[in-house]
Write a protein that binds this DNA or RNA. Structure first.
Lengths: 99, 99
DNA sequence: TGTTTAACTTTGAATTACAAAGTACTTTTT
DNA sequence: AAAAAGTACTTTGTAATTCAAAGTTAAACA
């Protein structure tokens, strides 16, 4: 596929993963509950998308206890930030050619 | 889903349909062969995506003969242009909040 | 001991995407 | 006239993706 289109990252074609990554670009870290609330999806669905991003090395998962409660927090890795940023660049180039 | 994300149009989540519509925004009309060459996909795949866009009323299909050869050409309809433009706006708003 | 909370994992169903093969109709080639 | 090729599909079958719902684990609270 020509037209800058192949520069789009398949990982970010899903709205959920696009949402997760954009949240993790703005916020240095977010925990499971915060993501779930922002994205308004079921926990199983969220977990599976987080798992996909983790497998790609785009996010870092940190499990800890806050007080007595388990808390898992997610951060974008450098490769993740790079990949997302590249994707946004591709989208921007793409848009500016399409208007 | 919050964060402007629900404003994204599901029809344009696919790279192929994104590509088709962007080509039809720039070029007033394109025929099957041109689209196939630009997008570099099989004809069956292209036909099914064109069919999806047609069902949504986003493109107009015109069948004719050019010389002795059958020629089908595709144009973006006004609702199609509007929908695509709205999608790009949503993407832009989304991107500017994510960098 | 039983229930709740957090963060999953598993299951299953529905949708989507795609390549490859087949089709219809016409034209060109032999 | 018969065979091959071109255009634009449609059909078929498979693989991948997405999601909700239910089940799981482990600790904490009542």
């Amino acid at each position: 596929m020509k037209n800058h289109l192949e520069a789009l990252n398949k990982a970010f074609e899903s709205r959920v993963r696009l949402g997760i990554m954009s949240l993790l670009m703005v916020n240095t870290a977010m925990d499971f509950g915060m993501l779930k609330e922002q994205l308004n999806i079921t926990d199983g669905n969220l977990a599976s998308h987080l798992n996909a991003l983790d497998k790609l090395g785009y996010i870092l998962i940190t499990k800890q206890f806050i007080g007595k409660k388990p808390n898992t927090s997610y951060t974008a890795t450098d490769p993740g930030r790079k990949a997302f940023s590249d994707h946004l660049d591709a989208l921007e180039r793409f848009i500016s050619r399409s208007i």
